[in-house]
Amino acid sequence: MADVEELLDGVPVRLESARVVRARGERRRARRRTGVAVVAVSAATAVGLGVWTQLSGDQDGSRVAAQGPNPFTDSRGVMQAPDPSSLPMNGSLHWTVDEKSSSSNQLPRMGLGNVCPSWRGDEDSLHYSMGTGLYKGKDGARARYRVVHFSERDDVGTALRDIDRTLRDCGLSKRADGLYSGRTGDGGPMLRVSVRQWNDWLGIIETQYAQR
Rank of each mutant, 00 (worst) to 15 (best):
W95F: 07
S104F: 14
S129R: 12
R63M: 09
A66R: 03
D98P: 09
P12R: 14
A23S: 11
D177W: 10
G111A: 10
S56K: 08
E99I: 07
D60N: 12
A210Y: 00
T34W: 00
C170T: 07
Y128R: 04
L8H: 13
S181P: 00
L55T: 03
I204P: 03
G77K: 10
V115Q: 09
R109A: 08
R153W: 08
S102R: 12
W198P: 02
A65Q: 11
S129K: 09
L172K: 11
H127I: 01
K174D: 02
S104A: 13
H127M: 13
T158L: 09
S103I: 13
G77T: 06
Y145R: 04
G57D: 04
A65C: 04
L126I: 04
V97L: 12
Y135M: 05
G182V: 03
V20Y: 12
G188K: 03
L7E: 14
L202N: 03
F72S: 07
V4E: 05
D154C: 03
R165A: 15
D164V: 07
V147C: 10
D83W: 01
S86H: 06
Q211L: 06
G113V: 05
F72Y: 11
D122G: 01
L191P: 02
K100A: 15
R22Y: 08
A18H: 06
L112Q: 11
Q106A: 15
R14W: 09
L179Y: 13
G140S: 10
Y135C: 01
R120T: 12
H94K: 14
P108S: 08
L93H: 07
R144K: 15
R168S: 04
M89N: 11
R196H: 14
E6V: 10
H94G: 08
K174I: 01
L87A: 09
L107M: 15
R212H: 10
Y128A: 08
S173I: 13
G111S: 12
D83V: 10
R76P: 00
P69V: 06
R76S: 15
G187K: 06
G50K: 10
V195F: 13
D164S: 14
R33F: 00
G203M: 01
V36L: 09
R183S: 12
K100F: 07
L160D: 02
L8V: 15
D186P: 01
Q208P: 03
S194W: 02
